[in-house]
């Protein structure tokens, strides 16, 4: 049996996505041509192509959209954006969907749930030091989210260390307190553009 559509609900999810995206992402222009899904380097790994996600957003299928693995497979290559005939800001929308999936706690069901963990581990270092720290990132992330991979990644890590391409201790910027204050205020301001 077909689902009964609640127009108010469908409009509100579309609005939520657009409001959480910087600038005007032109989501309402999508004409379902599939240029994005065809161009995507990780398209074959996605459960739904970006085009399908946009149709689902228009249909108000919030939970299904935020459970999708597609945004987490996005590699930010911007091919879809460069080629989209309607100038939809697809990559920006993928970032928005990731943020909303984390906010709603639905990312764990995407089947690629270590991706937010990687992002979170990365920014933990940035928030505490002001710079990224590859060794710490690799160790902490691998041990927490990908214990099996840690073993496999170890030789490469050693290779980077041996070539002087990885630091042993993180570098902290002088204005770390200033940065922390800025980020604290930013977080308090909320996530919509």
């Amino acid at each position: 049996m077909a689902e009964t559509i609640n127009p108010a609900q469908t409009a509100s999810f579309m609005d939520e996505v657009v409001a959480a995206t910087p600038g005007d992402p032109h989501l309402d222009r999508c004409l379902q041509c599939g240029t994005c899904g065809g161009s995507c380097p990780s398209g074959p790994d996605m459960d739904h192509t970006p085009r399908q996600l946009f149709a689902m957003i228009a249909a108000g299928m919030k939970e299904e959209v935020l459970r999708s693995n597609a945004p987490w497979y996005c590699v930010s290559c911007y091919y879809c954006v460069a080629r989209c005939p309607q100038e939809v800001h697809i990559t920006d929308l993928m970032y928005t969907l990731k943020q909303l999936a984390i906010k709603e706690g639905l990312y764990r069901e995407s089947g690629i749930s270590n991706a937010p963990g990687f992002s979170q581990t990365f920014i933990d270092f940035v928030e505490n030091y002001g710079r990224s720290f590859e060794l710490g990132l690799a160790a902490k992330y691998a041990l927490r989210y990908q214990p099996l991979n840690a073993v496999r990644m170890a030789p490469m890590g050693l290779g980077l260390l041996r070539r002087g391409r990885m630091a042993i201790i993180p570098k902290r910027i002088k204005g770390i307190d200033q940065l922390k204050a800025i980020l604290a205020r930013a977080k308090a301001l909320g996530g919509t553009a």
């Binding site: 899904g37 074959p44 192509t49």
Partner: peptide
Amino acid sequence: VQVEDTLIGKQ
């Protein structure tokens, strides 16, 4: 020719 076949949703 690389394309999304939009009727099946696959690249």
